[in-house]
Design a protein around this nucleic acid. Structure first.
Lengths: 298, 298
DNA sequence: TTTCATGGATAAGTTCTCTTTATGGATGCA
DNA sequence: TGCATCCATAAAGAGAACTTATCCATGAAA
């Protein structure tokens, strides 16, 4: 049996409106349906209950005793439902959930998100950092900031930052070995997250052909943030994205000995589901973020 | 726009069940639908709200924060609705509304309805007497007792009493004219409701050919009860149904001078809508009434 | 490890509810 | 008397909602 047959919910909704207006026609207007449809639904409900809910008087209707009894409860129930749905919709409309890599969140978002909130005080920001690629189908994410090739199906992606990489270390550590003059000098120092293919790629690009990286510990710290912290503490050389750490370089916490950067074709992207591109909070965030990065808008 | 589109009520109902069971499959069982249909409805609701309500974990699902927020309110609202509908159904199930002619109600029902209530203490009886033929479509009537030919479309009818008619008067009035010996004697007395075609029919059947009824006042009292009261008070001769007034005849309040009765093909019927023949209260009343009148049951 | 059982997602097709259009009837008002 | 209002009914069409069939992932059992 169909659900709507056992419990005529839509008919109840129509009934609520009719009881309020005392008119089939007006209720139809409110609900965006014809008077005929209203008549049909009321008849349905009356059949379901087993007695009339309205007395059909000429040019007006009147609640029967039964209808009089039913109306306030139905009204109360629908008010609860409507309010619950409204507050839910409002919450999702006004909360922007950003999924981001830990590095981008800490190095960039944490610094500028305040400006966004000043500009859009009605939008509450929820920032989620996780290592995994977010599945917009399954999680309540509005936008994601991720690195990759920007070719995710079903998503719109804007490249916001080249994900270049270059070796960085603390100035102090560099001084200890008498300065880093050429790429091969780096091999004298501990390489952080040496298993990362970026190392091999960068050394190849720098003309160091026989770099044996296998002798370094295979530790992976997962985020550049951790690698950077270790490097700043003098623990070795980290392969970092200059875009993220330019401030640390400027203030002398980190030192980038060579201009040469690598890029493996993967960059930083802002991404969001194609079908939600016009949701206001998403549009606002996209516009704000792309302006910050001087990206051409579409 | 469709009503169900602006406000997915059925989806909410499904959601309530799923939230309670923590399972699409179990909710489907409860609602009498397949797991697939449940999945569809939940997806619909999630799209409407704009974020997931359940986290799909391997062999179980879990409410998201949003779902957790929505569930109790939805549950509350539906409890109100369910309870309201149930109490309404219960009221209509347990109240038997009988529409009857005033005469039958006063002469017969008033005497025996007590026995029915003793036998079915759970059924509350509401007795409505009205001159009009009841429209089961428009009024909250369960059964009707009416006279006619029993050929009402959409209704089941049981003939419970022949609607014969015979002249009756008070014994005292009869004595005043030296007794009523032959039908024509009646013409010496005032005929009550003389405009009623029953008079002409009865006199014709009695062999009184030239009865001029036009000289009597045309008053119509509408119910036999009133005619009978006037007759008992010695106000004239009334054309009454012996079945209704046998007790008054037995106790001498009325006198029926001739055995001859007329019948115009219309009798007393119990009637109720065909599609409600199996409603318990109706079935019980029918059985009880037909037994009282020794009518063959089907 | 392989197999089985559980629970949900997806695709495609079908049913039938719900809606609309068109029309009629009843009543009140000018 | 004619017009406007309001609800009821009939017929037909649209599309929502449901089902069947199938697949996938996971956890438990053999």
């Amino acid at each position: 049996m169909k659900l709507s047959k056992q419990f005529p919910l839509n008919a109840l909704r129509v009934f609520e409106s009719v009881a309020r207006f005392g008119s089939f026609t007006k209720a139809g207007d409110e609900l965006g349906m014809t008077q005929t449809a209203v008549s049909y639904q009321i008849k349905l409900l009356e059949e379901n209950i087993g007695e009339p809910l309205f007395l059909r008087r000429p040019r007006q209707i009147e609640l029967t005793e039964a209808g009089e009894h039913l109306a306030p409860k139905v009204s109360e129930a629908f008010n609860i439902l409507i309010e619950a749905m409204a507050s839910m919709r409002k919450a999702t409309e006004e909360t922007l959930t950003i999924h981001s890599t830990a590095t981008f969140a800490q190095q960039w978002l944490s610094r500028y998100i305040g400006a966004f909130q000043l500009q859009f005080p009605d939008i509450a920001v929820r920032l989620v950092t996780s290592g995994n690629i977010v599945d917009f189908q399954k999680e309540a994410a509005d936008v994601a900031i991720r690195w990759g090739r920007g070719d995710w199906p079903g998503l719109i992606s804007h490249c916001i930052m080249k994900l270049d990489f270059a070796p960085m270390l603390s100035p102090k550590l560099a001084a200890e070995i008498g300065g880093v003059h050429e790429p091969a000098d780096l091999l004298k120092l501990p390489l952080i997250s040496a298993g990362d293919p970026w190392w091999a790629q960068w050394f190849a690009a720098a003309g160091v052909k026989d770099a044996d990286l296998s002798r370094y510990p295979k530790s992976e710290f997962g985020t550049q943030i951790l690698d950077a912290s270790i490097a700043m503490a003098g623990g070795g050389v980290a392969m970092l994205n200059p875009g993220h750490f330019q401030e640390d370089v400027a203030t002398g916490r980190l030192y980038q000995p060579f201009e040469l950067t690598g890029n493996d074709g993967r960059d930083y992207w802002l991404a969001y589901p194609e079908n939600r591109r016009n949701v206001p909070k998403i549009r606002n965030f996209r516009k704000w973020l792309l302006e910050k990065f001087n990206v051409e808008q579409d």
